[in-house]
Design a protein around this nucleic acid. Structure first.
Lengths: 157, 157
DNA sequence: TGGAATATTCGAGTTATGCCGAATTTGTCA
DNA sequence: TGACAAATTCGGCATAACTCGAATATTCCA
């Protein structure tokens, strides 16, 4: 039986949270952490572990580990409140961090592919590896460029 | 005890395969499938389930599920040999498919964020969601653009 | 420094995932 | 269509990942 008395989030908000989770889970983010991220996206201000645990209906320890996981991903930042032992969490405003991981991945991949050209005998295979490396590098650069432009335009604002 | 008699891949090749796997596993690709992808990247021509199983030292059923998983990801394509029940697998030459998934993810994400602006009360939060949606959309478009350019230049070649 | 409030870690139980060999199904040729 | 070869599915086992409540550690105030 769901506890309806402490319901601080609306039905549509709950749905949003679940949809965010559905999006992130396939990318390796654990369910609880993904839901927490959705929750924080909606929060008008930083949230405490207690309110997280209540609203998401999870234990406080789960809230704690999920929050620190998101913190390691740098999707979320911790805000220590002066004069209190409470820690508040909020979404990081460097949202390009989601893409930074992909960027690193693409960089490693093209490096690896290029390095492998020496260990394949067939010329056609070598060519394919080189093509792939080029492609991923191009895509990575495009994304990086967009990211750079964006952070510049954000500073101006 | 490792079976050395049927070793069709060299030590450096094995290392390459493991490195590819290390790269893909954190992105949710199962170990075996990731290794298989690395293997196929090195193969001069399409490989049968049997040779896969031997070279990667996995069971044939594992090879089968891994191959079809990669096929669903469209990282790999199946090549049915006319006049034989053998199926051969090779890496897909549309290697932009690795990025296509990320593209879809970014599109869904920005859509979701934009749709959520109506369900948050605080104006500042709404603004943040809009900013994020814009950002991911920009990044996605940049990547898509690069992809498009690439496939055009490939056709010319 | 002691004590209360809070966060974090630990150990156990539960669930999900991956791999394998055996059984089944599918596809090809005679 | 029968028989054979290959792919696929199935059930069980082992391992890893998550979640939780309890125990422990940390932080702040008096």
């Amino acid at each position: 039986m769901p506890n309806l008395s402490n319901m601080n989030i609306t039905e549509v908000q709950r749905r949003f949270i679940e949809e965010i989770a559905e999006l992130f889970v396939p990318w390796g983010v654990p369910q609880t952490a993904a839901r927490l991220y959705g929750y924080l996206l909606l929060c008008p201000e930083a949230a405490s572990l207690d309110s997280i645990a209540v609203d998401l209906e999870i234990s406080k320890s789960s809230a704690s580990v999920a929050a620190r996981l998101l913190e390691r991903y740098t999707l979320v930042r911790r805000r220590s409140v002066r004069g209190s032992k409470r820690i508040l969490y909020e979404v990081s405003d460097q949202y390009d961090e989601i893409l930074a991981g992909q960027n690193r991945m693409l960089l490693s991949l093209s490096d690896l592919l290029r390095g492998a050209e020496e260990i394949v005998p067939a010329a056609a295979t070598r060519q394919r590896l080189e093509d792939m490396a080029d492609f991923y590098d191009t895509a990575r650069r495009a994304m990086d460029e967009a990211r750079r432009k964006w952070s510049k335009s954000k500073k101006i604002r």
